[in-house]
Design a protein around this nucleic acid. Structure first.
Lengths: 239, 239
DNA sequence: CATCAATGGTCTGACACTGGCCCAATAGAA
DNA sequence: TTCTATTGGGCCAGTGTCAGACCATTGATG
């Protein structure tokens, strides 16, 4: 194994696609994750946030509009309104989603998610968090644990992301968001069963308890167990 | 805290800069990390790897040539030869590097690195590795632990990256490479003391032992301790 | 009803980036 | 010496992207 082994990690493609494609992807994920429930920010603001021109953003919005995800209205109090509602889960969708990304990429994504989420929980537990942030974490926990099937995925995402964000590292938050994005389609394709929610709730409790107790090992273990459960659920529906 | 809190993580800039800038950055990092010690791959191949046009790549190479990092020669057996040699560490360089990135970004980078590297070690330990990969890991360990001050940083990078790569997740490998890149300039600015090398060597041994033993908690703890040591070293030189 | 502020819609000139093609130089091979 | 494969160097036409300015529409407000 010579030096070129590591080169792959550094000399990888500089950009994933053109600006238009990446923008469509981003917006689609924001919508599917339920992070934008009403309407998108104004074009000018959104373009600035995404670091692209308004023209490119508008092309992406138009594509999503034509695909039925958005309803764009002009005039004051207008905007790009989200019309997307998650489709009912089906095994067919799951298999298609897996086929779309390939089994290698699936393993990659699950491994990546395991690493960054465990890392985030561990860091947060090790650093300790102050009163206000403790409240935030507890609130997220309450929200996801009291969610109904419709809101569950969205609030689960919010909970997991909150852990990364509370570390104060935007790089870590971005990595966790990215990891979650990569499995969104898969999770959306499997049904949300009350039994699974309750099982996950106990694990969420354990994660929060470990973080609040400042126990990095316990936090790591709790997250690992939780994500293992999710992965097992996926495998179950695929088998 | 409404839904918009999480938006920051998803509606972040789509691209970090233009293709030229990103390419210069990539190549510079590959050079500084010592991953390219002799010469770069041919322009045509490199452009394909980086997913950019040859024109853009050539501009980046010319910039690095003018900055004294490369020596470009034409004709068969020509190419872009690396002329860069790491400058002697100095406190001034360190302070400048810190000032360049800002203290917030520094904390962000250190936190990010802690999370992803701990996550990688944990995942690798949990998954277990076969004979061939065990040998790879052991070889990397031997190399870094027997390195002299000149080669130390390069082989240390190789060792840390090997852990991420052995998980088989290219996303994770990329994240770890990215994390390392963000602290390269800082590490290059602090002197490599024999005492520090020996201290780190013991920690590297502990990491490998935990991974080979399949003990995720121990692996996590060993990496955390190691990176804490590095962070403390940085703080010490800054104080 | 007239006005206004916020928002999407459109256009233009400039620059960045691409893909492809051919030229120039170089060192080894014949 | 001559040939040849490999590599960097240069150029061009086409497309993507940008920044900014201006137009069009809308619903609230006075």
């Amino acid at each position: 194994m010579n030096e070129s082994t590591h080169l792959a990690a550094v000399l990888r493609p500089v950009r994933a696609g053109n600006a238009f494609e990446e923008t469509v992807e981003r917006l689609l994920q924001a919508i599917k994750l339920g992070m934008v429930t009403e309407k998108l920010p104004p074009e000018r603001e959104l373009a600035a946030r995404l670091g692209i021109s308004r023209v490119t953003l508008r092309e992406a919005i138009r594509a999503l509009q034509e695909a039925g995800y958005l309803d764009v209205r002009r005039g004051r109090y207008g905007g790009a309104f989200v019309t997307y509602v998650p489709p009912p889960p089906s095994q067919g969708d799951l298999r298609r989603a897996v086929a779309d990304m390939g089994t290698d990429d699936l393993a990659d994504a699950l491994t990546f998610r395991m690493a960054v989420e465990c890392g985030a929980a561990q860091v947060l537990a090790a650093a300790g968090i102050d009163g206000e942030r403790r409240d935030t974490l507890r609130r997220r926990l309450r929200e996801v644990n009291s969610a109904g099937p419709d809101d569950y995925r969205r609030l689960d995402t919010a909970f997991h992301l909150a852990i990364a964000e509370l570390t104060g590292s935007s790089l870590l938050a971005a990595a966790c968001a990215d990891a979650r994005l990569r499995v969104t389609d898969l999770l959306n394709a499997i049904p949300v069963l009350q039994r699974n929610i309750q099982h996950a709730a106990a694990q969420h409790e354990a994660i929060v308890a470990a973080v609040l107790a400042g126990d990095p090992d316990a936090a790591r273990r709790a997250v690992a167990e939780h994500l293992e459960g999710t992965a097992a659920l996926l495998r179950g529906f695929l088998a």
